[in-house]
């Protein structure tokens, strides 16, 4: 079995196909797919400052790597934003791997922590509220820090490493929970209306699978040691992930079909929420669809 384009040994079989690619041609395919997603969804303008949300995992590291490769010769500026949630044994609080990469590639890295921003680490939050799944706090607080800090730093697009698998899971989660409003802000470029209080999020890996991204990270020496978040198995997402993986195994193409059919209905979903006003949180002033933003609701619960 050879690569589709040359005689070299293949390193990957592309999803839902019998296409085999070697290292060189897989890297070309990967970059082309990212460029195409950025172009088709008008993700970037030539003078943009992109903030890349970095966890140190394979998705965000691959994203920083490929965006740096594509945009280094252009006027688009890249900065990296990292958050230490304060989960013992999970995240390296010193972000050694990320720091080294950013230093080598001359990318400015900004790090923030739950402790500094909210007064508590996620482990402390977990101790205080053992009823609520920690992922609830983690997701809301991470989004809030990223948005606020991106605004402060003059970032006008926030790039995240969300991939096809993540998106298929989120679409299903929202369906199962009847959360149509949350689905309205999904898609390769998030948000319903332009609002200066929100930094628009872009997902250049929208059409790439986890497997493709892991292979890319491995081939380009940016795959750090695998560490699983101790809270990951508690989350609702994990149940949906297992269900979807089982379905994908039995019916290949399931994840792609979920995302693809979702995209064809997304304009209608967005339209349904366009008229809803965006308020300012009565506590912190952040943009929210309610009177008080979710981060402040959770902080109140904790205090």
């Amino acid at each position: 079995m050879n690569c589709r384009n040359c005689k070299n040994n293949p390193v990957i079989t592309l999803p839902n196909s019998n296409v085999y690619l070697c290292k060189k041609h897989f890297n070309i395919y990967f970059e082309k797919k990212v460029r195409k997603t950025i172009r088709i969804y008008n993700m970037l303008d030539k003078n943009d400052i992109i903030g890349v949300a970095i966890s140190g995992g394979k998705d965000s590291m691959s994203l920083l790597y490929i965006l740096n490769k594509i945009f280094k010769p252009t006027k688009v500026k890249l900065i990296a934003l990292s958050i230490d949630e304060g989960i013992k044994g999970y995240r390296d609080p010193n972000f050694k791997f990320v720091k080294l990469f950013c230093k080598k590639n001359k990318i400015k890295l900004h790090t923030f922590s739950f402790k500094k921003e909210f007064g508590k680490t996620l482990d402390e939050i977990k101790k205080k509220d053992s009823e609520t799944i920690p992922c609830t706090f983690c997701g809301v607080f991470r989004r809030k820090i990223l948005n606020n800090k991106a605004l402060e730093l003059g970032v006008n697009k926030l790039a995240t490493g969300h991939n096809l698998d993540d998106e298929a899971q989120t679409i299903l989660m929202n369906q199962f929970r009847k959360n149509t409003r949350a689905s309205a802000v999904l898609g390769p470029v998030t948000g319903i209306v332009n609002d200066p209080r929100f930094v628009r999020r872009i997902k250049p890996f929208y059409f790439l699978t986890e497997k493709e991204i892991t292979a890319f990270a491995f081939l380009n020496n940016i795959l750090d040691k695998y560490v699983e978040c101790p809270n990951a198995k508690l989350g609702y997402r994990n149940s949906v992930l297992e269900l979807l993986n089982e379905f994908e195994k039995r019916y290949p193409g399931t994840k792609y079909n979920i995302v693809s059919s979702f995209l064809s209905t997304l304009p209608l979903i967005k339209e349904g929420f366009k008229e809803k006003t965006i308020n300012s949180c009565k506590k912190c002033g952040a943009a929210t669809s309610k009177d008080i933003c979710q981060a402040c609701v959770l902080l109140d619960e904790l205090n």
Binding site: M1, N9, P10, V11, I12, T13, Y20, S55, G57, K58, D59, Y90, D166, T209, E210, K211, I213, T214, F218, L223, Y226, V227, E228, C229, A232, L241
Partner: peptide
Amino acid sequence: TEKAKLNNNDEIKLLSVISGG
């Protein structure tokens, strides 16, 4: 790839593609 031939005494590593977080 999973189509590669296996040899006796091969040492294989299976790296997880699932995100840790």
